[in-house]
Write a protein that binds this DNA or RNA. Structure first.
Lengths: 216, 216
DNA sequence: GGCGAATATTTTTGATCATATTCTGCGGAT
DNA sequence: ATCCGCAGAATATGATCAAAAATATTCGCC
């Protein structure tokens, strides 16, 4: 059916589909999620959807209530602290390593990705920002060549995704985190620490925004 | 069939069963894993096993090769660096928080758990050590009340588990990591930083052992 | 009208089956 | 001897169905 790649299993494709829905704000925090609902939403059988859901709950993107219902976790101030503590621990480290390993071609690719981010911000396109921002960050993290840390970062992003969507919707795109050009400048000069600091600042802006919207 | 708790779904029980097999060394790194094999090993249908496997691959405890086979990941020097970087970032922090929140009863409970660890070390019981050591650490982490960090830690332990088993088998129980009494002493004095340092040292011993066995 | 039990509906869960994919072993050609 | 291709076996995958569980609704009773 899906002509893109007949070899990779469907539960994998469904997983990515649902993951993107969560990452880019198609589902809201606290919103209940049913297998049959998702089945209709993504147009698949129930078996792949079930497997995708197990994977996403393992990553913290979904939560199983005591009874057998699934929902998108609502974030609290304590959880925000946890998530951002982990983000500060993991993501700058990846940037540091990436800065030691990037090629000039890699940096050009990141610049192109950042242009898309800036365009989305300029256009006030929240969904576009969320998606292009994700692409920029994780392409950068790719260059660190640390798949385990990357996996942790994905999990953390999945947990802030829904909330960030709410925040963005409320405050618009003008105050959205963006220290990308500072990071790129540091990459070009091959200054790992400076690059890590820039992304740390980027993360901090996201944290401030999230805290604001929680009224903490 | 399982009389323990008829309410919780089977895929959950199967997940824990397989997880324990991985954590406590019943499976070896690089070993291939099949759904039918696990089905027989844990005595369950194929559906719950499949869901458990998806969950475990999401946690990095299992790995899907390019073709549709599953195996227990073999660890490399680079992966060890990643995993232990993350452990050093996450686990001491949890201990620090736990030290601020533990009650005297909590500490007594931990002491009892540590006695089991020491008994296993004294008896040269590798499997018993792995299991009781896990219980001690994660009971301690429980007291931090940081479920997200805890989940990350579980994932990291799942990834070092199989290797640690190999290491233990090679060097015996005498050199196994154990800074628990130092940690307990710090807890009793309510010194969060000292407790965190003790666990950091505990982790470092595990790292050294793993590095040795990799010949790095 | 309000409360509680019983029924109906929806949803999840696990088993089973058909299909597709991959691996293995064998035979033949170079 | 090595490499290639072709059956045959084993495995994974996805759909479908039956049973269980949970939620929503209805009915009877006070």
């Amino acid at each position: 059916m899906n002509v893109s790649d007949p070899k990779l299993p469907e539960h994998e494709a469904i997983y990515k589909k649902i993951r993107n829905m969560i990452l880019f704000g198609a589902v809201l925090p606290g919103q209940p999620v049913t297998i049959l609902g998702l089945k209709d939403a993504v147009g698949a059988g129930v078996t792949p959807v079930r497997e995708a859901i197990r994977r996403l709950t393992a990553e913290g993107a979904l939560e199983t209530l005591g009874n057998r219902r699934i929902c998108v976790p609502k974030i609290s101030a304590e959880r925000v602290d946890e998530i951002y503590f982990a983000r500060f621990s993991i993501e700058p480290k990846m940037v540091e390593l990436a800065a030691e390993r990037v090629t000039d071609a890699n940096i050009s690719e990141l610049e192109a990705l950042d242009n898309v981010v800036n365009a989305a911000i300029g256009a006030g396109d929240v969904e576009g920002y969320l998606e292009s921002n994700f692409r920029f960050h994780f392409r950068l993290y790719d260059f660190a060549q640390t798949p385990i840390l990357r996996k942790i970062a994905i999990s953390l992003w999945l947990q802030v995704g829904p909330s960030l969507r709410v925040v963005s919707g409320r405050y618009g795109t003008s105050n959205l985190p963006d220290k990308h050009s500072e990071a790129l400048a540091a990459l070009r000069k091959r200054e790992p620490i400076a690059a890590a600091r820039a992304i740390e600042e980027d993360i901090r802006q996201g944290l401030d925004l999230t805290r604001q919207s929680l009224g903490v």
